[in-house]
Amino acid sequence: MAHLSAETMADGARLAGCYPERRSALIPLCHLAQAEQGYLSEEAMEDIAALVGVTPAEVRGTASFYDMLHTEPVGRYVLAFCTNIACMLAGAYELLEHAEELLGVHAGQTTPDGLFTIEEAECLADCDRAPCVQVNHRFVGALDSESLDLLVADLTAGNRQTEIPQHGVLCRVRRAVDLPARRGAAAGARSEKTTFAGGAGDGGAGS
């Protein structure tokens, strides 16, 4: 019995079917699980392991390598402050310190109400709008201390939920088709070692 919702499990199975080897879906499935739960619970990692055919330890061992995958709960909003060179030259550390004072926690910590987690991020590739901040990986533009205050107030009041959805970068748009070219391709076109794993993704109709 899966711990993740039936919808996430179905989406996950379908995604896994889009790869020649199911394990390739491990990271996308972690994003799906985070969209549902906010982080990767032990149970979610067990479900992912079952979907891609590895052990839960392999899921954890892989996920722990990646900054975006959280094996502990994080706040409803993760504020990521880039402090790399371009943003540092635009006052990113001063902005991060302002956020730490405002929210009463340090980078890497979550507010007691569970609303905000602050992270010191590496370059987020939006350097012409420095200092660069993301909320749940949505760019919110260059901020100064005043606009950060406004943003935090807005988020606290629940005003930005359309613009900034829940966790998980795959939460709003899904692949609509399976692999029609593969279905049309002659069998045996691939070498034996990497035969496409037939999976739950194979049967779904393209929409």
Binding site: I27, P28, H31, A63, D67, P180, A181, A185
Partner: peptide, 11 residues
């Protein structure tokens, strides 16, 4: 024929 998969990284 070609299939394309958009794959997300994770930081």
């Amino acid at each position: 024929s070609l299939d394309l998969v958009i794959h997300p990284g994770a930081g």
